[in-house]
Amino acid sequence: MIKLILFCEYFIPEMHREAYHEWVQSHPELWLGIKLLENTEQPGIYVELQSTATIEEAAKLEKERREGRSWNEMIQWVKGNDEGLRIWIFRPVAIND
């Protein structure tokens, strides 16, 4: 089974990071199955990684991420608001030995 990754990236300015972190901690149900990471060299840059089995599932998760779940609540903290959200679907690359 090929695993795809739904990759979301955004920037939370320093003045909003504490509110964002508090919000994330208070809504663990929104992050089930999602790895949420912050850049160590550029604090405030966050990525979300979510595995999917099919391109259809990935597209459904992308649509939901753009239009639902947590995004509507957290948009207030993201630099550039909804235009600051970057979402891509990645698939594995076969490497020949």
Rank of each mutant, 00 (worst) to 15 (best):
T52P: 05
Q50W: 10
E56Q: 15
L37W: 04
I55D: 07
T52H: 15
I55E: 11
E41V: 14
W23M: 01
N39L: 00
V24Q: 03
E56M: 14
V24P: 01
V47E: 03
L30R: 02
L49W: 05
T40W: 02
Y46C: 07
R17Y: 01
V24C: 05
A53T: 15
G44L: 04
E57P: 04
I45P: 00
E56I: 13
E14T: 07
W31P: 00
E57C: 09
W23F: 15
N39R: 03
E57L: 09
V24N: 03
L37S: 08
Q50L: 13
H27C: 06
T52K: 07
S26I: 00
M15N: 10
Q50G: 09
Q50I: 08
N39G: 03
Q25T: 05
V24R: 12
P28L: 02
H21F: 06
Q50R: 15
N39M: 02
Q25A: 12
H16Y: 12
L49G: 07
Q42E: 12
H21M: 06
E14S: 07
V47N: 06
K35W: 03
W23A: 01
E29G: 05
T40D: 12
Q25M: 04
I55W: 09
Y20S: 02
E14H: 06
R17I: 02
E14N: 04
V24G: 01
W23C: 03
Q25R: 13
A19S: 12
Q25F: 05
E41T: 12
Y46Q: 06
L49I: 09
L36I: 04
T40G: 05
E18S: 13
H21T: 05
K35F: 07
W31S: 01
